[in-house]
Write a protein that binds this DNA or RNA. Structure first.
Lengths: 203, 203
DNA sequence: GTCTATATACAGATAGAC
DNA sequence: GTCTATCTGTATATAGAC
């Protein structure tokens, strides 16, 4: 963390990094203070509690996420938009190898302790899911958009878990051709047999 | 926890339950002792450290897993064997809604702290993955068995994460017809076009 | 606004009576 | 083998000098 930027920003950045790498419960305020080059006692001038820092981290991730989704949304086709999202995960694959998906692993951990932190983390996954669902709606997938969105997100989250567990970036990287083909197969299936029944084969 | 069974067993069962529900780091020895109806000081007669209890829990889960895989293996067809595995996850869906997949969430948490516990948790996922891979090999999927196994497991783990995050058992339950159809499509694809290229569409 | 020193709480772990 | 009492370390959080 650069020593020059605003302390509040440095603290949030440090917390964001350490919470991802070590998890929320294992990360101490002393860790965060050290990483941010801020004396421990000074942390409380900026944040009343440890939870308050975590909330700031969640807000930061939310802003970051919405900016990213905005960028992905500018791609011309549904397929390009969905693959842009996947590509952003692949761009961070070394982080994922080391510590898992920043959002997914946070949800796993915070879901267990409930409270406002769990809600905030869930919101991140939910916003992403809604964005993905919108893409499938643009593909005229109608009622199946939600199921397809879950399938898409679960595939990425599941592969992120395996990538982290087995420390192998290829697991996530190999998803790109596979999901690309999957999206094509959906469009293809739709053209050939627009019946609802056929959809379920891929849902 | 019944007060009558052996204390060591009660401690492991209590730790297993609480670690699943609260995570390893948030679960204290006092929690475990209370749940097992064992005085706190007595815990150390059975386990030297907190880590030692966690290792016993992992060993317990490993035994349980291997017994289950043994049972699934007795089904007649590959499809039935794979669906038996999925069904076992669905049978525990209320647990998953509450606390996520016992193995997957443990891997997420313990991967971040490294050490022998992370290795033990990884082993559980790896053993499962190898068993799934064996099933696809029995379907003559050859080199693609590993990729298909990852896809299968990632789908289940990903949906377990969403089930837990969004507190909705249907997310996991709806997987059964979807994965069933997916397995059929693999077999069908294989019969119609046994080329490697076509496989990747579903990988 | 900044930082040192410290209060408070509770975790893991131990000693030793029974 | 069992359990109470306690040690020790460390985390969150506060008080108050500068």
């Amino acid at each position: 963390m650069p020593r020059t930027t605003d302390k509040r920003v440095r603290l949030v950045d440090a917390a964001k990094k350490l919470i991802h790498e070590q998890g929320f419960n294992l990360t101490t305020l002393a860790d965060i203070a050290q990483e941010a080059h801020v004396p421990l006692g000074n942390v409380y001038y900026y944040f009343k509690t440890k939870e308050a820092i975590a909330e700031a981290v969640l807000a930061n991730r939310a802003r970051e996420l919405h900016e990213a989704l905005q960028v992905f949304s500018s791609a011309a086709s549904v397929k390009e938009r969905l693959l842009a999202y996947l590509q952003s995960e692949i761009d961070n694959v070394e982080q994922t190898v080391k510590s898992g998906c920043p959002i997914g692993s946070l949800c796993q951990e915070l879901a267990k302790q409930g409270g406002p932190l769990a809600t905030g983390a869930t919101q991140l996954l939910n916003d992403t899911l809604l964005w993905i669902e919108k893409q499938f709606q643009a593909m005229d997938m109608g009622d199946h958009s939600r199921t397809l969105a879950r399938q898409f997100m679960a595939t990425i989250q599941g592969h992120a878990l395996l990538t982290n567990t087995f420390k192998d970036p290829k697991i996530l990287e190999q998803l790109k051709p596979a999901l690309s083909a999957w999206i094509d197969s959906l469009a293809h299936t739709k053209k050939v047999t627009p019946s609802v029944e056929k959809m379920e084969e891929y849902a």
